[in-house]
C-alpha cells in the first residue's frame, strides 16, 4: 500500500521509511475508522451543500512587479527559462 501511495505522491522512500510509515498509518487509520459510526441524515447533507457559494472577481490581468526574484529562485535555468530534466 505504501509503495502505491508514495508513487502517487511522487515521494521517494527508503525501505526503512516505508516500513515505519506502514506502522504509523495503519495505527492512525485504525483510530479514524471510528468515523464510520457517525450518522449523517440525507437532509443534513443537502443543507451542507447549499451553504457554500463561490466568490468571484474581475478577470483582469495584472503584471507581477518582480519577475527577477522568481527567476532567481529557479534551481536550474537558461536565460529567463526554467530548465528541467528530460521529460520523455
Amino acid at each position: 500500500m505504501i509503495k502505491k501511495l508514495s508513487n502517487l505522491a511522487r515521494i521517494s522512500l527508503s525501505p526503512e521509511e516505508e516500513s515505519d510509515l506502514k506502522k504509523d498509518i495503519e495505527k492512525v487509520l485504525d483510530y479514524v475508522n471510528s468515523l464510520k459510526e457517525a450518522n449523517i441524515s440525507s437532509k443534513q447533507q443537502d443543507y451542507f451543500q447549499s451553504e457554500l457559494s463561490n466568490i468571484f472577481r474581475q478577470d483582469v490581468v495584472v503584471e507581477f512587479d518582480d519577475k527577477d526574484a522568481i527567476i532567481k529562485s529557479f534551481n536550474d535555468k537558461e536565460e529567463r527559462f526554467l530548465k528541467v530534466k528530460a521529460i520523455l
Binding site: 505504501i2 505522491a9 511522487r10 515521494i11 521517494s12 521509511e17 492512525v28 487509520l29 521529460i87
Partner: peptide
C-alpha cells in the same frame, strides 16, 4: 535525478521530514 519524474521523487523525498511525509501519504490514501 535521471529525468523529470525522478526529480519529483528525489526532490520531495529528500526535502521533506518524517511527519510531513506521514501526512502526505495518509492524505494521498
Amino acid at each position: 535525478a535521471k529525468d523529470l519524474i525522478d526529480s519529483y521523487f528525489k526532490n520531495r523525498g529528500g526535502g521533506f521530514g518524517k511527519e510531513v511525509k506521514r501526512r502526505i501519504i495518509l492524505g494521498t490514501h
